[in-house]
Structures are given as C-alpha cells and as structure tokens.
C-alpha cells in the first residue's frame, strides 16, 4: 500500500490530513501498523486538551507492543474516534481511514511544513538501512 499523496507525514510515523473545516485528522501510517502488528487497544487524547508539537498524546497497543503517538503540530484536540475503541484492528485493515483524533492547529502553516508522501517514503527507506 502506498502512502496517499494528499496527506502529510511525521518522522514518528503519524499521518495528517487537513479537513474542510480547518481541523486535522491524525492516524498512524501503513509502515507503523506493519511494524506493530495486530492492534488491540487505542487510547486517544482527551477532547479540549492543548498539545505541544511532538508531545506524547496517545497510545496504540498491538499484541506485541505499546507505541506512543505524538502530536504532529501544536493545537487543541477537537474529537477522538470512539469507533476505534471497539475495532482497533481497523488500523491494520485501513490505516489511512482509521483516524485516531482530530485537532485544530495553532498555526495551519505548521502542517504544510511536515513531510509529503515522497519525503516520508524516503525517510522510511533510510530507517530500514
């Protein structure tokens, strides 16, 4: 599965999608879910919480291991995806639909500064060596 061109990416393997209302949706990438394996638990940040860029704010756990999820930019959490509580495996099945939480960035330009799909793929390839 290739990384969608319309998303932005972080070095900690989150993807970021800008929505029509100016919020951003955040999930973990195909590469991240492949590394972690079968997901069994997701803990999203509380709605209303203000996050600094790079702050640990959520957790995904697979059968194998727990992994922290980081805020890609600074901003305020507006929504958590409650559906993932009952079906964490959707992160494995369709990582780019299974968003974990949404936030309103303090500065929308911060999102533009993140990696695009090509840069992210190059980053993943470089980590593999």
């Amino acid at each position: 599965m290739s990384n969608p061109e319309n998303l932005k990416y972080t070095t900690s393997h989150e993807w970021v999608r800008t929505e029509a209302d100016g919020t951003v949706s955040i999930g973990i990438t195909q590469h991240a879910q492949e590394l972690l394996g079968d997901m069994v638990f997701v803990e999203a940040p509380a709605v209303g919480r203000h996050l600094a860029a790079r702050e640990e704010c959520a957790v995904v756990e697979s059968v194998k291991a727990a992994a922290d999820v980081y805020a890609p930019v600074s901003g305020t959490v507006t929504e958590a995806n409650a559906e993932l509580d009952g079906s964490p495996e959707s992160i494995n099945q369709d990582p780019y639909s299974a968003w974990m939480f949404k936030m309103r960035p303090d500065n929308s330009s911060d999102v533009g500064a993140l990696m695009d799909a090509t840069a992210y793929q190059a980053f993943v390839d470089s980590e593999a060596h």
Binding site: G37, D38, V40, V63, K64, N92
Partner: peptide, 8 residues
C-alpha cells in the same frame, strides 16, 4: 519468524 501475517 515472529508471524507470517496476523499473529491473532
């Protein structure tokens, strides 16, 4: 081999 696909 840790898995061949899904561990579950």
């Amino acid at each position: 081999p840790v898995n061949y696909g899904s561990q579950i």
